[in-house]
């Protein structure tokens, strides 16, 4: 029982605040994992530092929390339009960390130091996702995709 006025109102509501155009892409990238049983880490905090007037001076610190582990990364803008990711795992452990990037770019893998620090340098802007291997007694942890 929807007449033309109701239909027009609903069409108008659908135009208000539509989902961002890249939402499907971000979701599809995030769930295109071979391993789906990983624990999902929630984004809990994003903080910006730097002047903001120049993008090259801005850094962004993002915290993801899973039950078994916290993953914190700082995304630093480089002068060559690439970024560096400085990361920490807590509790710290020498675990394998994978940085997934959209195809055809290959994933990168590093091993954190015993304190849980890891670095990915010369990373292109765009979508990315982190996977952290499980330590003793804990499973893998996956973050949602983030836009670098």
């Amino acid at each position: 029982m929807t007449d033309s006025v109701d239909a027009e109102i609903l069409e108008g509501i659908a135009r208000l605040d539509p989902a961002p155009p890249d939402l499907d892409e971000r979701v599809l990238f995030a769930i295109e994992l071979d391993q789906v049983d990983a624990e999902v880490a929630r984004l809990t905090e994003t903080a910006y530092a730097g002047s903001g007037a120049r993008a090259a001076e801005r850094t962004r610190t993002i915290t993801f929390e899973a039950d078994s582990r916290t993953v914190m990364i700082t995304v630093v803008e480089r002068s060559d339009n690439l970024v560096r990711i400085d990361g920490w795992l807590a509790p710290g452990a020498a675990l394998r960390v994978e940085l997934r990037l959209p195809e055809p770019t290959a994933s990168r893998t590093v091993v954190a130091d015993p304190a849980g620090r890891f670095v990915f340098d010369e990373v292109p802007h765009g979508l990315a996702q982190l996977l952290v291997d499980g330590g003793t007694g804990t499973g893998r942890v996956v973050t949602p995709s983030l836009v670098l």
Binding site: A19, V27, L33, E39, V40
Partner: peptide, 17 residues
């Protein structure tokens, strides 16, 4: 908007799990 986009992603990851 940022949080909503993130929550939607997290929800799909949970569905997959």
């Amino acid at each position: 908007a940022d949080d909503a986009a993130d929550v939607v992603q997290t929800t799909w990851l949970e569905l997959l799990r």
